[in-house]
Design a protein around this nucleic acid. Structure first.
Lengths: 236, 236
DNA sequence: GTATCTTACTTGTATATACAAGTATGTACA
DNA sequence: TGTACATACTTGTATATACAAGTAAGATAC
């Protein structure tokens, strides 16, 4: 049997995700929820409290509880897909799939994915364009074990990250950020010079079972910045 | 009047920080705390619950509550001082203070700190060396209102971030990461060429009252990487 | 000796209740 | 008109209580 406060959380989350409730809209008060779900106020309150802690809702004394306006931002680096990022800036988005194939892992790649040497893996190379300008080159290898249908996807319809989240719920991610000078091929794709610095984000995503994919995201240094936000937990 | 559950949290935190309680050690049970502090079990429980949420404690049903072993890692980018980072890698650390002065804020600087135009602010420029090689150039401006004694510090004894945390408990931080080519002066200080890419982290730190400082941290791209880790919160 | 049951803890969920405190909106009064 | 107060909400804190459920260790039966 599921705890009752979880049912209330789910109900609220459903309404938010279905668009039934929008950001900055007020959710029912603790007393109203208690009536609706036939629980005590403290149980309804617990549901709200946890949603506030998760950043889904905002509360203030005397005013009420409201849907938060920036749900996906939970940790420092918003794991926002480049697609969403570009659309959010009000620009036109499109991409070109440069490469979408099954390959035999090189020693380095097998290490990165945690698979056997010379195992078969998937490899995609997609350039993302913002208002016609290349803004990110995504070079990604994927473990076929956790996403067997990966190659069959149309990445104009769905981003790689979105698809992977669906088939193998991601639980963790590692990031390494560095500044490098691009190789000729990368520079050509991004339409920059090989003397222009690149911001490279190397990201490994994990599901509960293992490493799902390893992606290197190349950005033109002069055209891209990572923005992040971090809250310290007050200790007193 | 301070809430009682906060007093309990503080008492536990104090014991942990003073070394009185060490990781993996069991903390008193909810009932014991209730007796000790003369509160109801639910109030003691709240203190423990929040400390668990903050990652300070771990709990499991039937067993008890224990001090967690990895307190500082809370968010994606560990805000580890460059000093700790170098020491952790087992290398020798030292620094050179290039500049430590009171200046009149430029328009850009007054915006970055959120102070009036031409207000007096503090400016420091410190290069951090790992095993003799420059690894970070820290260019920092500080709002004197929140840290009036900032200039009097000896930054060989304490890092700027450590000092600022003490005098004005930091609650938030913004980060922007980008890849740039350094100016001549920066390149000279870091002992790199102006054609070598630099990783720049711009960080604004906030206390409850306002912006405390704005720092730009320049790293030689080929000698430094940012490592990060992120956990997704399951939504069920 | 080994397996099972009992007991005594622990945390987890849930309720009913009470009062404190912040916010907005009314209404009465000057 | 405008200020002050009363009211009716909201969330915040705190208590006492009850039972569920997980864990460990000791007692018991075989």
């Amino acid at each position: 049997m599921q705890a009752r406060y979880i049912a209330i959380k789910s109900a609220i989350l459903d309404k938010i995700e279905s668009g039934d409730m929008s950001p900055n809209q007020q959710v029912p008060s603790e007393n109203q929820l208690a009536l609706q779900f036939n629980v005590s106020r403290m149980t309804a309150r617990r549901a709200l409290t946890e949603l506030v802690d998760e950043g889904i809702l905002m509360r203030s004394q005397g005013l009420g509880t409201y849907v938060s306006d920036h749900r996906p931002m939970s940790s420092m680096l918003e794991i926002r897909s480049i697609h969403d990022e570009i659309i959010h800036r009000g620009h036109h988005y499109n991409n070109q799939v440069l490469c979408q194939q099954r390959i035999v892992a090189s020693p380095q790649q097998s290490t990165q994915l945690g698979v056997a040497a010379q195992a078969e893996i998937f490899h995609t190379r997609i350039v993302h364009l913002e208002a016609g300008f290349p803004i990110q080159l995504e070079d990604r290898i994927v473990n076929p074990r956790w996403a067997p249908e990966y190659l069959a996807q149309d990445f104009n319809q769905i981003t790689a990250n979105q698809y992977l989240s669906q088939v193998a719920p991601l639980t963790q991610a590692d990031h390494i950020v560095e500044a490098v000078l691009p190789e000729q091929q990368v520079a050509d794709t991004l339409q920059i010079q090989i003397s222009d610095p690149c911001l490279v984000i190397a990201r490994r995503t994990f599901s509960a079972k293992g490493i799902v994919s390893f992606a290197r995201l190349f950005h033109p240094g002069h055209r891209y910045r990572i923005g992040g936000h971090l809250e310290f937990t007050p200790k007193g």
